[in-house]
């Protein structure tokens, strides 16, 4: 957290280029390569998580300021909840007898 002094928003440009690259790589892997569904999902899922992290740290400066730690705990816990909700719901509702 600093008052900007540099004349060019270098990290922003870098982050932007990186996010475009990640997006197009994900699209390419999914649409152009003939990999199995599971492998594709793992690759593009990982790329999505990286890109989300990029937004959080490079653009949103999640860790800056006196509440940086709180922000990290907050986002980490909510991401944990998000994973529980998504993975848990799908698991519970598509396994065993519930699948039928």
């Amino acid at each position: 957290m600093e008052k900007s002094t540099e004349r060019f928003p270098l990290t922003h440009v870098f982050g932007f280029v990186l996010s475009l690259v990640l997006t197009f790589v994900a699209a390419w892997v999914a649409l152009e390569m003939n990999l199995s569904f599971t492998i594709v999902m793992w690759i593009i899922g990982t790329l999505a998580v990286i890109q989300a992290g990029l937004q959080l740290f490079m653009f949103m400066h999640m860790t800056e300021g006196e509440d940086g730690k709180v922000n990290i705990i907050n986002i980490a816990f909510m991401v944990f909840c998000a994973v529980v909700i998504v993975v848990g719901s799908i698991w519970v509702l598509t396994s065993g007898h519930a699948a039928h």
Partner: peptide
């Protein structure tokens, strides 16, 4: 934008594969 990344990945790309 973060949300959109996940929509792009888990809705559109996943839907296409």
């Amino acid at each position: 934008d973060v949300v959109w990344i996940f929509i792009f990945t888990f809705v559109y790309l996943k839907g296409m594969v």
